[in-house]
């Protein structure tokens, strides 16, 4: 073995050790616990700076993306969902329950009769891409007023009808976002009923956060005091895999 191959071997070995070490440190639970405090800083700072009512930017018809990418579940395999899909969601009802005075079960026609909002907004995927679309839907605040939240309710949980990987998709937001003017349960996208790949019959739009918060295929809305007992306990499908619950950045 000459000196050059020996040196090359040594360097490769040292490099691999450092890389493996870095990989271990970079994903070690104590390191991640330290890093995750930044989510609280970002949430606190953003909530203080943005203010409760500030609107996400809205765009013009000319800005609407020709291709709006669909991510996550694009075609639910769940039997219950497919039976509703086959009947055009005629027998489907959105359930609103949990910490409310008046639990509700609303048909699509009843949802369409609620105060609505139409908005052309940008959808930002956590992966980095953006698409612009026009959404029309029932204002979530109108629905919550009708159901009358109990004072102990702190979060709104969206239970979805699709299974992604091994578990049902779900998401949650706090009351600041739930009451926001642009937070709607969208039934129309770009002037037509929301398609299956984009979450038919109903998808959440919470425009000041990233794409994974925009839950599709919503079947049930639950008001809760804590997110602990739901799903993996972190407040959402991707959150249970380690993503930030506050997805404002």
């Amino acid at each position: 073995m000459n000196r050059r191959t020996w040196l090359r071997g040594l360097l490769a070995g040292v490099g691999a050790t450092i890389a493996a070490g870095c990989e271990k440190v970079a994903t070690a639970p104590p390191a991640l616990k330290m890093l995750k405090v930044a989510e609280k800083w970002s949430q606190g700072a953003q909530r203080a700076i943005i203010g409760r009512h500030a609107l996400a930017p809205e765009f013009t018809e000319a800005d609407i993306s020709r291709t709006f990418k669909a991510n996550g579940t694009r075609r639910p395999v769940d039997e219950e969902y497919n039976s509703h899909l086959n009947t055009g969601f005629s027998g489907w009802k959105l359930v609103v329950d949990g910490l409310v005075e008046t639990p509700l079960a609303l048909t699509l026609a009843e949802l369409r009769a609620l105060p609505s909002r139409t908005q052309i907004t940008r959808h930002d995927c956590v992966e980095g891409w953006s698409c612009i679309g026009k959404w029309k839907g029932a204002r979530l605040s109108a629905l919550l007023d009708q159901a009358k939240l109990k004072p102990e309710a702190k979060f709104i949980v969206f239970h979805c009808m699709d299974t992604l990987g091994a578990s049902k998709y779900y998401e949650s937001i706090d009351l600041t976002d739930a009451r926001h003017e642009q937070t709607i349960l969208a039934y129309d996208m770009n002037g037509a009923p929301v398609s299956v790949e984009h979450g038919a019959p109903l998808r959440l739009r919470v425009e000041r956060q990233l794409g994974y918060k925009q839950a599709k295929y919503i079947g049930r809305i639950e008001a809760v005091a804590s997110l602990k007992g739901i799903g993996g306990g972190s407040g959402g499908f991707w959150e249970d895999f380690g993503y930030e619950w506050y997805a404002g950045i």
């Binding site: 493996a20 870095c22 970079a26 994903t27 330290m34 890093l35 930044a38 992966e127």
Partner: peptide
Amino acid sequence: GWMTVPGGEFDLTNGRHWHLFFAW
């Protein structure tokens, strides 16, 4: 993977945690 933090296989979750912490 040898250029990224964390190294190795694609890991967006933890990449974001590192990025958004050190951005502060």
